[in-house]
Amino acid sequence: MGRDKTRIRNRIRSLRRLADGMTQQQLADRIGVTRQTVNAIEGEKYSPSLEVAFRIAHTFGQPLQDVFEYETPRSVAETADARSGKSDSTEP
């Protein structure tokens, strides 16, 4: 009955490193939020609005789905199954 907990994962930290070691402050200035908000997004403590998410993706020149990933417990379980090979065994 309980509502599934959802989580938006992201790879902003690795993208910042790839972008010549862009700092959180530099990214924050570009997307128009505070550094603390960038830190909260990176730490997956805060899910940004769609507009900020698009701005982040645009800053790194990546499609949105390459920066953010919507993850539910079901998708986590499926990923874990796929990794352990269970999904192959259940397939006809």
């Binding site: 490193r17 070691g21 700092t23 402050q25 505070t34 550094r35 830190n39």
Partner: peptide, 22 residues
């Protein structure tokens, strides 16, 4: 050196200085 600064960068620390709003 850039690798070294990656380790030392202050924004990589889990705690961040309070914002003005906070």
């Amino acid at each position: 050196v850039s690798g070294m600064f990656d380790i030392m960068k202050p924004d990589e620390h889990p705690t961040v200085e309070n914002s003005f709003e906070e």
